[in-house]
Amino acid sequence: MKFLKKENFEAFAKKISRENDIFYPEQTNGSYRWKKNEGESFSLEGHRTVLPMKYFFFPPGENLKEKERKPAVIFGARGCDLRGLALLKKIYLEEPEDIYFRKDILIFSADCTSAHKDCFCAALGDEPWAEEGFDLNFSFARDGYIVEAGSDKGSEILKNNSGLFEDASNARKREILEVRQKTKETVLKQNGGKNIKPAVIAEKIEKNTDVLAKYAEDCVSCGACTNVCPACFCFFLSEGENNKIRYSDSCQYPGYARVAGGANPRKEMTPRFKHRFLCKFFYRPAMQEIKGCTGCGRCIDGCQGGINFMDVLADIAGAAE
């Protein structure tokens, strides 16, 4: 672990920007949105962005052909984004690999120092900081950042910029725990101290179709929940003029699973609504060994029907066997 003084952060970012496009979470009206850096100063405090990080890796409506572009560095990715990315990588990079899923992006994640009102990661047993999947992670000490390398590329960057970094003292390392704990408590508190076990959800979904059906009454099949989810990966492959195009798609759309003959296993709302929970808590853990929910709460924020997905999970978890 290294220590980066606050006043050295800008010099570090400038140096990185020489060979990379830099993206970071910009705060506007209390929300965070991804922004391309044009040389302005920025900081890493705050919480997850409105849109997930995933679209840097597979932008909606992408023309699937070779592109010339600078590699990118994403500053300020959050733990939820990285947990989502871990699943996306398993899906997209498994053989045969999707060669258009970007691999030239470095991730410089940062601990959350605040929480969006819908964040519930800690209530789901996850942490409001990244534990793996980053190249560098930035944690907050009083007068700067504690920086941890999570990959060979990250270690190399620290080595190449050794003039800007110093060794982190144990006292400073302890300081980051205070920030982490405070954010975690905020998340737990705003979720009433709930402790939802993903494995319990997986077991109980099938037996609680009636609970899901009740919530599904408010669903308007708009697909916002899947579009803003950092772990949802579905797309529709379409024909472009000289290449294929990968459009975002949603299992919540009525025609999603329909075949040409007209058969549709999920034409009704409740099976579609249930499918999303089964996918996240049962199917993906069974097949990819990663759950498909990160507790970021973006689906709650985006839901046009006002469905609180954390409440759905809490109801299923608390329901009778």
């Binding site: 492959l237 329909r258 075949v259 296993p265 996918c279 199917y283």
Partner: peptide
């Protein structure tokens, strides 16, 4: 099984049949 295969390589999700 006939399902709505789009990508054909296990990525797009369209032909989900339970966990498969």
């Amino acid at each position: 099984m006939e399902k709505n295969m789009s990508c054909g390589i296990g990525k797009c999700g369209h032909c989900a049949l339970g966990k498969y």
